[in-house]
C-alpha cells in the first residue's frame, strides 16, 4: 500500500479501513500533510462549491427551461430548444464575432507589450518603483478605469481628442464609432492589464538561470538573439499560463463594455451593437428582456464549454507543462 492510497482512506473512511501497524517517517509526513492541507483547502473549497459549482449546475439546468426573471409561473422544461435557437440567432453570432475581435486585439497587444516591458525590467532596470507604477492601472477597479477612459476619449470634453485636434486632426468619438469602439475597448483593457501581465512574465523570467545569459553574452549573442533563444523558450510555461488566464478574462469582459461602450450617454453595446460582446448580450437577455433568462443561461453554458475547450487546446498546443529547463 502506498502513501497516496493511505491518505485517501484516512479521509474517506477513517474507521472502516484497517491501518497498517507501522508507517515509516516519509509516509507519515505525506499523510499528515494531506490532513492539514484539507483543512486549509476547506474554506476555498466551500467558496468554490457555493459560489461557483452549485450556481453553474443550476445555470445549466435553467438553460433547458423557458425561465423568466419576472414571472411567477414555474419555468417550463423545453429541452435543448434554447440551444437550437442559439444556433440560428444572428445576434448571438454577431456578439461572438465582436468578442473574438476584442480578444484578439486585447490579448495580442497586451501580451506583446507585457513581454517587452518584462524583458526591459529583467534586463535593463530592476527598480521597485517602476514595478509599482506598472501595477497602478491593475489596482484600479474596472468600472473606474472605464469611466476614466470614457471621459478621456469623449469627443467633446475628452483630453485625447483635444490633443488630436491640437495636432491638426479632427476629433473622433472613439467609443461611439462603430469601427473604433472595439479597438478602443481593447486599448482600455490592455492599458489596465499590461502592467500586471508584465509582472507575471517578469516573475517567470526570474526562474531562468542567469548563467545562460552569461554564456550567451560570452558567445557574443545580441539581446534579441538571447530573447529568442533563451528567454522565450524557457518562459513558455509561464507565458502559457498567463495567456490562458488573460484570454479567459478577456472573453468574459463585461464591466468596461457596460460602462464605456457607446460613449457618454450612448447605448451600451452601441453604436448599433458594434461593441455588443457576448457577456453584454447575455446580460441583455437575462436582465433587460427578462423573459429570456433560460436563453441567457444557455449562452453562458455554451461560452463556458467553449472556454474550457480553448483552454485545453491552448495548454496542449503550447505544451505548457513541459519547460525546456526541466
Amino acid at each position: 500500500m502506498t502513501a497516496g492510497q493511505l491518505g485517501a482512506n484516512d479521509l474517506v473512511a477513517d474507521a472502516a479501513v484497517p491501518k497498517p501497524p507501522k508507517r515509516n517517517r516519509e509516509e507519515r509526513a505525506l499523510d499528515g500533510g494531506w490532513k492539514v492541507a484539507f483543512w486549509f483547502l476547506l474554506p476555498s473549497l466551500l467558496g468554490f462549491l457555493i459560489f461557483y459549482l452549485i450556481p453553474t449546475i443550476r445555470a445549466i439546468r435553467i438553460s433547458f427551461t423557458e425561465d423568466s426573471l419576472t414571472s411567477r409561473n414555474p419555468a417550463e422544461w423545453i429541452g435543448a430548444e434554447n440551444y437550437r435557437e442559439l444556433w440560428s440567432d444572428d445576434r448571438f453570432w454577431d456578439s461572438v464575432w465582436v468578442t473574438l475581435k476584442f480578444v484578439a486585439m486585447n490579448i495580442g497587444s497586451q501580451t506583446i507589450l507585457a513581454l517587452i516591458l518584462a524583458v526591459m525590467m529583467d534586463r535593463l532596470t530592476r527598480s521597485l518603483i517602476v514595478r509599482g507604477i506598472l501595477l497602478v492601472p491593475w489596482v484600479l477597479p474596472n468600472v473606474l478605469v472605464a469611466m476614466l477612459w470614457l471621459f478621456l476619449l469623449d469627443p467633446r470634453v475628452g483630453f485625447v481628442n483635444s490633443v488630436i485636434e491640437s495636432l491638426g486632426f479632427s476629433a473622433s468619438s472613439f467609443l461611439n464609432d462603430s469601427t473604433l469602439v472595439v479597438p478602443a475597448m481593447a486599448f482600455i483593457n490592455t492599458w489596465k492589464f499590461t502592467g500586471y501581465t508584465a509582472l507575471l512574465l517578469f516573475a517567470g523570467m526570474q526562474t531562468i538561470p542567469r548563467n545562460l545569459y552569461e554564456a550567451g553574452a560570452l558567445d557574443g549573442s545580441s539581446e534579441m538573439t538571447m530573447f529568442r533563444t533563451i528567454t522565450l523558450p524557457l518562459l513558455k510555461p509561464v507565458l502559457a499560463l498567463v495567456m490562458v488566464v488573460s484570454l479567459i478574462g478577456s472573453f468574459q469582459m463585461f464591466d468596461v463594455a457596460q460602462t464605456a461602450s457607446g460613449g457618454l450617454g450612448g447605448e451600451t453595446g452601441g453604436p448599433s451593437g458594434a461593441s455588443r460582446v457576448i457577456y453584454i448580450y447575455i446580460y441583455e437577455n437575462a436582465f433587460l428582456f427578462r423573459n429570456k433568462f433560460g436563453y441567457a443561461a444557455a449562452m453562458a453554458t455554451v461560452l463556458m464549454g467553449f472556454l474550457m475547450f480553448v483552454t485545453l487546446a491552448q495548454l496542449r498546443l503550447l505544451r505548457a507543462n513541459e519547460s525546456d529547463l526541466a
Binding site: 502506498t2 502513501a3 497516496g4 492510497q5 491518505g7 485517501a8 479521509l11 474517506v12 494531506w34 484539507f38 473549497l45 468554490f48 462549491l49 459549482l53
Partner: peptide, 13 residues
C-alpha cells in the same frame, strides 16, 4: 499517486 487522492476529494465535492 497524490493525484488519485485529489480526484477522490474532488469527486466527493
Amino acid at each position: 499517486m497524490r493525484n488519485s487522492k485529489l480526484l477522490r476529494i474532488l469527486a466527493l465535492v
